[in-house]
Design a protein around this nucleic acid. Sequence first.
DNA 1: ATGGTTGCTTAGCAA
Length: 255
Amino acid sequence: MKLATWNVNSIRARTERVIPWLEANRPDVLCMQELKVEEDKFPFDQFRALGYETVVAAQKTYNGVAIASLKPMSDVRLGLSDGVEDPQARLISAVIEGVRIMSVYVPNGQAVGTDKFEYKMQWMDRLVRNLEAHYDRAEPLAICGDFNVAPEEKDVHDPVAWAQETLFHIDARKALEKIRSWGLVDLFRLHHWEAGFYSWWDYQMLSFPKGRGLRIDHIFATEPLARRCDGCWIDREARKGQKPSDHAPVLATFG
DNA sequence: ATGGTTGCTTAGCAA
């Protein structure tokens, strides 16, 4: 099985990049984030033409997550289902070939000290409670998506400069570690130890050509699934060329 | 250097 995740930064703006990428890479599953469109305007037909069925949790203008799959999906679940009134579409999951696959878009947090950063912290804590309440770390499960947090110094081009930002603040890193310590493995770090691999580069200041990025998109898996993972990588090529997303896809394969 | 870029929606917000 080949699993991919990609923050597309508007599916309508990115359809001409995402569809050819799917055709070239043919993952069994693609988790997407930041659709920025209501469900009735999602381009289901173009995915279906390549053999993918897609389920979405969407809203107008902001956020929005989806899972496109070649294989049948069952028990589709939307949101954190914790009774909290929350209009933001940031989580969808489905069971595919016996694996619970989650597509998540963790809040960016805007700036440390703001209400949005507080919402980010609370959302990550709610995700931990969702895992504790509904899932079993002994079962195969993958959480894929834009976590908006880089785990370690080696995942950030300039850790000192980014320490005060929402994507690498110590509180955000601790919250990410709490999610991981529920019983998840960072699949990228199973296969690569080196610094300097990034999944996101700001559109501004020529960040991509200058190599100023962060590794904030992840595929986390429970132990029984991680044991089957024989590769995990970031497709930097997809960040190049005309009208790219500011994120690159992350992929993992399983035997 | 308080800049710079992109997308949605239409001047301001979010990333």
